[in-house]
Design a protein around this nucleic acid. Structure first.
Lengths: 210, 210
DNA sequence: ATATGCAGTGGTTATATGTTCAGTGTCAAG
DNA sequence: CTTGACACTGAACATATAACCACTGCATAT
């Protein structure tokens, strides 16, 4: 496969993006306009080059009838677009992290780390929210919350283990007092831990199916 | 969604098969030849019917620029864990589908179709919510909403074009009155369209970064 | 019987679109 | 200095393609 010039790579990239987003192929004039050319012939030359080098196929004389025969390195261009797979738990029975069994997951979810707001190679997971205790923070019953195991700061929404069950609460850490958990719902009381506070992770993002 | 006649189903099926196998859309003449018609006008009538019933979208006067808005009888077999990549728009200036420029995407998001609650049709996109007009539906400023182009039913949350900008509203379709848009915020009035209601798609899921 | 929607013929028109021809300017290799 | 590949301008030209109008035939419903 012959090498492409910079310009030719740009043209090919535009073809791919355009067809992916719009669902059909651009006309020569649309390509011309996108690159700011003044002549359609500039485009024609590049398309001919792409065709000669075997990257695309066209049907002579017909409109918008391309076919990309060779995909350029468009798989996972940036590391920020890395997709990871996480289990979704309905509840976490025993104390994280040791107590989680694989079979406990009620579902799996796949999101890129940028969207989920998490780091790679941490043992993140998702939690299905039950109850309305965080409704004032915009977290509703049935939402999936993506949790990243980390030490919480004041104000973070965390997944915490209380009475053998996991709930979502806001983590409050006063300057000169032990931290406690606060529900974002006026009808729910604050939770001051009697012995120890087990934080399973920080909520990084929310996914809700409508 | 209106019912299709037998002939219209055949036409729609041909569109899908053709575009899948060839990689681009058939011209009206190619459709005519495939069905053995003697007049292109036979095809035009069917395409118009399909468009009126909301199954496809076309761009007037342009060649081979279809877009299937509603997938018939096609169901993803088992690969429900398929991850697709969608652009994220901050706003869609002019009328979708024509007005989208390549550079308008402010980000990209990758989620598996099962989590996002969408079909594999690849025309879905995400919208960054601005404002508090849907706050009572739990949709906040800054949320990303995954939109799937489709015809809305009563009660769906839709992305709609109003005054040249895209907003998220609930679609209300009374039995014997024209449909209108309702903001899920007591401080916002209902929106009754003066001329035409341009629905860009149905909100399928929400992703919020905390 | 009269209307209405669906399916189609036949021919015309406007334009969207691909194609070709004759050039210009740049830059690197021989 | 010349050659050639590359990137592009500018102006035609041919046709692929969608759109339009008038009309026919056939059901089914009012």
């Amino acid at each position: 496969m012959d090498e492409l010039t910079l310009r030719q790579q740009e043209i090919l990239g535009f073809l791919q993006v355009f067809s992916q987003e719009r669902g059909f192929w651009p006309s020569i004039r649309e390509i011309r306009d996108h690159f700011g050319f003044n002549s359609t012939n500039a485009v024609v030359g590049h398309l001919r080059a792409l065709e000669n080098k075997g990257y695309i196929t066209r049907i002579a004389g017909q409109a918008r009838t391309y076919r990309i025969t060779y995909e350029t390195s468009e798989e996972s261009p940036k590391e920020s677009l890395e997709v990871i797979d996480m289990p979704v738990y309905g509840n976490i029975a025993a104390g994280y992290p040791d107590g989680i069994e694989q079979g406990d997951a009620i579902d799996r979810i796949q999101v890129d780390i940028n969207t989920a707001g998490i780091r790679r190679s941490r043992r993140s997971f998702a939690l299905k929210v039950r109850g309305e205790s965080m409704i004032d923070a915009g977290i509703h019953d049935g939402d999936m919350v993506i949790i990243e195991p980390a030490l919480p700061n004041d104000g973070d929404i965390v997944a915490a283990l209380i009475d053998g069950a996991t709930t979502l609460k806001r983590f409050i850490k006063p300057n000169s007092a032990p931290p406690y958990l606060k529900a974002e719902n006026v009808n729910y009381p604050d939770l001051h831990p009697v012995s120890e506070l087990v934080i399973q992770g920080i909520a990084r993002s929310i996914v809700r199916k409508l």
